[in-house]
């Protein structure tokens, strides 16, 4: 008993550590004082100000659009690549997995710089397109790594059974294989979307002067002071995702069965 209490306290402490800054930001979004340093009473004015702040709304729009597009494109390329990798022989497979791991293990700053140098030498104008290309690039590995395990679990006979029953390769894929790997594809998409949303470093090197995502906007505001509207926006985003997660987890689950023997 004693032991489990201690364990629960430990988990609670870690969660306090991880969530204290988030709670702080939420509190700040209701702070009437404009500086972070002191509490000036409760207000909702930053929430109404948020909807009049075009710069922030524009950055939000850009962030979401890039996150969605990059995750979507990365999901398609990544899923197709994962299927190909899964059916490869050892040597090719090792090569592809090696390449896939480069953006994962390499420092983000180096990935950002390398893409920046590429775009400069090719002569693409920095802006939406360059950021999108960069985000797709670092998103693909997340999709591949979340689809591959699903593919490995797949029983190859089901695909062959579909062919045997007269399905074409395409029908067999979409009716039999795809539904099975769908959870992996979806979690890959969500992972990619989240990563893109939270990215700063790579965007920082590939965005050029005209464009701002929420991250880069916050970074430029650090020196002169963050606009409190930013806190209210973050709070809104965070709370809506939280509600969404609670709703998803509310869906009734099967009774926990204990198996013996």
């Amino acid at each position: 008993m004693m032991k489990t209490t201690l364990q629960k306290i430990y988990i609670a402490l870690i969660f306090v550590f991880l969530y204290a800054p988030i709670a702080t930001l939420m509190v700040l979004s209701f702070n009437a004082s404009k500086t972070r340093a002191k509490w000036g009473g409760f207000t909702l004015k930053w929430y109404s100000a948020l909807f009049k702040n075009d710069a922030i709304l524009q950055a939000l729009y850009t962030t979401l659009l890039i996150a969605f597009l990059s995750a979507f494109i990365a999901t398609i390329i990544g899923t197709v690549a994962a299927i190909a990798i899964n059916s490869m022989k050892k040597k090719n497979r090792a090569f592809f997995m090696g390449v896939t791991n480069i953006p994962m293990v390499n420092a983000e700053i180096v990935t950002g710089i390398s893409l920046m140098l590429l775009f400069i030498s090719v002569g693409i104008r920095f802006g939406f397109l360059t950021v999108l290309l960069a985000h797709i690039t670092f998103n693909i590995p997340y999709v591949i790594l979340s689809v591959l395990p699903r593919l490995k679990q797949l029983n190859p006979s089901t695909y062959e059974a579909a062919l045997d029953l007269g399905a074409t390769h395409t029908t067999a894929f979409f009716k039999v294989v795809f539904p099975d790997i769908l959870p992996g594809v979806l979690s890959g998409f969500l992972m990619a979307f989240t990563m893109s949303l939270d990215d700063f470093i790579i965007t920082h090197f590939t965005k050029g002067p005209g464009l701002d995502t929420l991250s880069t906007k916050i970074y430029t505001e650090v020196k002169k002071g963050i606009k409190p509207e930013m806190y209210s926006l973050s709070t809104l985003i965070f709370v809506s995702v939280l509600i969404l997660l609670v709703l998803v987890n509310r869906t009734p689950k099967g009774q926990k069965d204990v198996s013996s023997c």
Partner: peptide, 30 residues
């Protein structure tokens, strides 16, 4: 739900803001 709670959910609060929040927490009068 644990993995989501520890990994995914915090990421929806911008990482720069989360890090900055430590300034508020750590300040002399924080």
């Amino acid at each position: 739900s644990f993995l989501v709670l520890i990994f995914i959910l915090p990421m929806w609060m911008n990482f720069l803001l989360r890090t900055l929040a430590w300034q508020t927490l750590l300040e002399k009068t924080g």
